[in-house]
């Protein structure tokens, strides 16, 4: 019986602990998405929204769907699309104030308190990986009738609860404080990584199509996968050097 000895989630979790012992510059976070296994469930999208309490209009990892062919020779394909964490990111040089840059982890990060919200980086990203926080909440304009229904004030608690992006605790208590008015993007869940936790999109992946780890660790799953022959990256021709790889 061929039985997997371990869920890849457990294996990657263990590899992550190993990687965290290294100095940041010695490791190389990459994500590998196996399109043969992606079932187009969008759980990663929602897990990320939930983890980072993303407001309406902000999404870090949509899953694109496409139907190709003509009946009965038809197929459907799914493309989960986080930030590529480009090694040559076109999005950072355009920022007038250094509010977005590639940090020592190799992750293209946002400094919410520095960002002026000019959106030049959205324009510059060839992967549409950035979205702007317009200050909405999903529970905007919901009814209120205390003691009879739950009502907006209680219902939106989870939207106002603290998030920990970049290790900062932020609550969404008004429509002016960052990250409202900022551009937002996937950050490989740095705040979880530092805790020794895999990115939220990775752990929730029901197709086990998303892999994450340190490509510099030769024994890691991702190091193995990115050298396979069926690996590709999006818009490779742009020279952006994505750190997100796809298996096809």
């Amino acid at each position: 019986m061929a039985q997997e000895p371990k869920d890849v989630l457990v294996r990657m979790h263990e590899e992550l602990q190993r990687a965290l012992e290294k100095a940041p510059e010695d490791r190389r976070w990459v994500m590998v998405i196996d399109l043969r296994k992606c079932v187009g469930c969008h759980a990663c999208t929602i897990a990320c929204v939930a983890e980072n309490k993303l407001p309406p209009g902000v999404v870090y990892r949509p899953v694109l769907e496409k139907e190709t062919g003509i009946y009965p020779n038809v197929t459907r394909s799914f493309l989960p699309k986080p930030c590529m964490q480009c090694d040559e990111p076109p999005c950072t040089p355009v920022c007038p104030v250094y509010a977005t840059y590639k940090d020592e982890n190799g992750v293209v990060v946002m400094d919410y308190d520095q960002c002026i919200g000019c959106r030049a980086c959205i324009i510059a990203c060839p992967y549409s990986a950035r979205t702007f926080d317009f200050g909405k909440t999903y529970n905007d304009n919901m009814p209120e009738m205390a003691g009879v229904i739950v009502g907006q004030k209680v219902a939106d608690d989870y939207e106002r609860a603290a998030t920990y992006e970049y290790g900062d605790e932020r609550r969404r208590l008004n429509r002016k404080d960052s990250p409202v008015g900022n551009v937002r993007k996937c950050h490989f869940c740095l705040h979880r990584l530092k805790e020794g936790m895999l990115p939220a999109c990775t752990t929730t992946c029901i197709g086990r199509a998303t892999y994450f780890g340190d490509a510099n660790d030769p024994d890691s799953l991702v190091a193995d996968l990115i050298t396979s022959s069926n690996v590709m990256r999006l818009k490779e021709e742009l020279g952006t050097q994505p750190r997100v790889y796809y298996l096809v």
Binding site: P93, V94, C95, P96, V97, Y98, A99, Q114, C115, I116, G117, C118, R119, A120, F132, D133, S178, V180, G181, N182, V183
Partner: peptide, 23 residues
Amino acid sequence: LDLGHPFRFMNTITSPNFGSFMA
């Protein structure tokens, strides 16, 4: 007014990134 944070306009003066055309 187009900026998400108009009052941080000063950041472009105090910490400009001259690698960016915007700066």
